[in-house]
């Protein structure tokens, strides 16, 4: 129900509210980072999920990699798949 896509923070913009330039395949737009968790605000190089010009969350590289690994292991050995599955659930 909401179109949101990952983009990369390429520049922090000056000013008091947290604004940054975010890039998606070479297209740049000013994005408001004010909704990100205070403990973990956005930094240049971070990937964030953009929805209506706001960053909704950070994209976790680790989770993405693990999901791909899990999918790659599907149908290989059942044991490897189970191990990965448990790994994913524990995170």
């Amino acid at each position: 129900m909401c179109l949101a896509i990952p983009g990369k923070i390429v520049e922090m913009l000056p000013g008091d509210s947290a604004q940054a330039l975010v890039e998606v395949l070479g297209v740049r737009r000013k994005v408001d980072l004010g909704l990100l968790e205070e403990a973990d605000p956005g930094r240049v190089g971070d990937w964030v999920l953009i929805h209506v010009g706001f960053a909704m969350s950070k994209v976790s590289e680790r989770h993405a990699m693990e999901q791909i690994r899990l999918l790659e292991a599907l149908g290989e050995t059942e044991a490897a798949a189970i191990e990965l599955r448990q790994g994913l659930e524990a995170t």
Partner: peptide, 11 residues
Amino acid sequence: GRVVPWEGNRS
């Protein structure tokens, strides 16, 4: 999991 934290976004 790559974008959804179990607890959501507190901010």
